[in-house]
Amino acid sequence: MAIRTYTDLPLDDRAAFELACARHGFAPIHFDISGQADPDDPAHSELLVVRRGAWAQAYRVDSRGQWLRQFEVDLNGRFFRLAPHA
């Protein structure tokens, strides 16, 4: 199944994504999520691209939910925080 928005995520991943967002003061709607084939992988596994404003990060999708742990590490590191307006 192609992932075009966060609602296309598998139910378990969607719930974990919602919880990770909530733990860091975000809502899922704050992010744009899309899936695409990994151009560097001959088997063309899927990459999940998460965007917020000008910031984007790609995560390799696997059956163990590793992308969710990496997404939360990025949230902890404040990767997706927008710079305050001057």
Rank of each mutant, 00 (worst) to 15 (best):
M1N: 03
A2I: 09
I3G: 10
I3L: 15
R4K: 15
R4G: 14
R4S: 14
T5F: 04
Y6A: 11
Y6M: 07
T7C: 06
D8M: 11
D8R: 08
L9T: 09
P10I: 01
L11M: 12
L11T: 03
D12K: 06
D12I: 05
D12E: 02
R14T: 07
R14L: 11
R14Q: 14
A15H: 06
A15L: 05
A15G: 04
F17M: 07
F17A: 08
F17E: 05
E18Q: 10
E18M: 06
A20S: 13
C21M: 08
A22L: 08
A22N: 04
R23N: 11
R23P: 01
R23D: 04
H24R: 07
H24D: 00
F26I: 13
F26P: 02
A27L: 03
P28V: 11
P28A: 09
P28E: 05
P28F: 00
I29P: 03
H30Q: 15
H30I: 14
F31R: 06
F31S: 15
D32H: 08
D32T: 12
I33N: 06
I33C: 10
S34N: 06
G35R: 15
G35K: 13
A37F: 02
D38A: 00
D38G: 03
P39H: 01
P39V: 00
D40Q: 01
D40M: 01
D40H: 00
D41H: 02
H44R: 09
E46H: 04
L47C: 03
L48P: 09
V49K: 14
V50M: 03
R52F: 02
R52H: 00
R52Q: 05
G53L: 00
G53Q: 08
G53I: 01
A54N: 14
A54M: 06
W55P: 02
A56Q: 11
A56R: 15
Q57M: 02
Y59T: 07
Y59C: 07
Y59L: 05
D62I: 03
D62Q: 10
S63C: 12
R64I: 04
R64C: 11
R64S: 14
R64N: 13
Q66L: 06
W67L: 12
W67A: 15
W67I: 15
L68I: 13
R69K: 11
Q70D: 15
Q70K: 11
Q70H: 12
F71C: 05
F71K: 13
F71D: 11
E72H: 06
D74G: 07
L75W: 06
N76S: 03
N76Y: 02
N76C: 01
N76H: 03
G77E: 07
G77C: 01
F79K: 13
F79T: 05
F79I: 03
F80M: 06
F80P: 10
F80V: 09
F80Y: 15
A83P: 01
P84H: 00
P84R: 01
P84D: 08
H85Y: 02
H85T: 13
H85P: 07
H85D: 12
A86N: 02
